[in-house]
Each structure stands twice: as C-alpha cells, then as structure tokens.
Amino acid sequence: MTTYSAGSNLEKIFKSGKKAVTGECGPPRGADAEHFRHKANFLKGCVDAVNVTDNQTAVVRFCSLAASKILLEMGIEPVMQMVTRDMNRIALQSNILGAAAMGIKNLLCLTGDHQSFGDHPQSKNVHDLDSVQLANTLRMMRDEGKMISGTEVQGRPQMFIGAAANPFADPQEFRVVRMGKKIAAGVQFIQTQCIYNMERFHKFMEMANDMGLTEKAYIMAGITPLKSVGMANYMKKFVPGLDVPDSYITRLKGVPKDKQAAEGIKIAVEQIHECLAMKGIAGIHLMAIEWEERVPEILETAGLLPRPTVS
C-alpha cells in the first residue's frame, strides 16, 4: 500500500506514477469572490490541483488562505502559496495550522517577490524566515510534531510540501544545488519558473538527474503560454531571470495579430511535450496568467485530458 504524507490528490497522482498537472489562479485585488470563482471554474476538472498565489508580485490581493478555502468549497484542490515576506515565524506557523485545520493539503513555500515591485513599495518586509526554512518548518511540524520553538504541535498539519525553483537565474551552476537544499529541507514537489529557454532547462534537468534530485522530489515544468508578441517582449525585457529566446518572438511575429494567441498556445503545447519527454519531469505547472479560460484547450491539445483519478 502506498503511504502518503498528506494524501492530497496531487500527492496521489505523483505516487501513482502518472504525470501531474497543476494550474494557477490569482485572487483578485478586492473582495470579489465571484470573479475568483469564475476564473477557477475554468480549471475545475482540468488540473489535479490549483495554485493560489499569495499577494504575488507584492500586490495586495485577497489572501491565499481564504482563496484556498473557496477552492475547497468548489471541489477544487488548492496548492496554497505562502510567502515569508509578509509574516514572521509566529504568523507563518499559525497560518499553516489554520490552513491544515481547514483541509488544505498542499503548501508551496516561497520567499516572495520583493515589495519594491508591488503596489506598496513603502511597506516593511519581514523575512524572518526564507523559503527553505519555511519548508523545513512545515516538515518539522508535520513529521516531528514540533514548532520552531520546540513546542509540541497538538494535531500535526498533514500537508504535501512544495517549493519553486528558477533554473534561469544565476549563478547557473548553483540553481540545482539550491533546489537540492529545498528538497533536503523537506520539499516533496517543485514547480519551476516559466520555461522558455529549453536548452538551459535541459541542462538544469540533467544536473538534477545527476544529483539524484529527481528521485527525491517531483519536478513540475512551469509553462506560461505567450498571448502575444507584446507579452513575449515584456517577459524578455522586464522579468528578471526569464529568458525568452528570439526564435519564439520571431514565430509570434510571423503570424497575423489575431493568430498570435493560437501560435502562443501551439508553442506552449510543444514545450509541454518536450518537457514531459525529459527524464525526471513528473508533471506540468501551467500558469496561464489571466488566461484561465484557455487552460482546457491547451491541456486537451497536449493530450493531458481527462485527468486521472487515484483513490
């Protein structure tokens, strides 16, 4: 019998040996839950779990804990994101316990974007812990029943532990080592930053395989479909560590403007196939930013629907 650390759907899919698919849904910049439900509905049944971002790019949105709870009510499994930028170890542990108590079974441990990029650049940041330490904290609370202070946890948070990795940041040769640190701290699944430079990602995965990391954690390739030439140029120029090769930009430029979205999806599907063929890739993390309605089509074309069920 397979033993599970949290028993989330995502964990079950991974452990069954099938390729997993996660999506992403950002809460709105207001209390409009209907808008969030509307976007999330597109993902229902198409993915194994849905990431709920935690004030991504340091912009205030409704909190990931509440949004995760809404997904649960909708019958969608959340991957709750948690950043260490805004909360100290007291609040982080408290939110872990609260989230687990509400039935949230996947937690993605992140440091978070610096607040200078967000809508409140004058805010104070916390950074009591970093993402590696947050993962270690959850592992300790779940497996050892202890908080950072050593205090015993009354009711352990049963959560599947995730983290992010950016294969395209520098120093290049250290990126896999850092992912290894996260795994050593307790991380069980990794979702990568959006991949465009396939060559560099191949190298990253080779190193991950050589270091035995793909045996220790499930690595999901992060894919963000390009909606237009404009988006591709923006990603290339303004998102640090995101390397969009000119070949993709040329391809998008080569079709009429009203066909660019379709071409972007075609590229995404090709990338999904290429990634799934790589040794050590356990799934796809599809981040269709404000494009949730196209997720079913992308996954259908990629041959990833219907999603398997594992009891």
């Binding site: 970093d130 992010a164 120093p171 850092r178």
Partner: peptide
C-alpha cells in the same frame, strides 16, 4: 540565509 533567490541575474 539560503540564497540566492530567483531574482539574481
């Protein structure tokens, strides 16, 4: 304490 983050380029 466990850097660098993904924003190092």
């Amino acid at each position: 304490l466990n850097g660098p983050c993904g924003g190092s380029s």
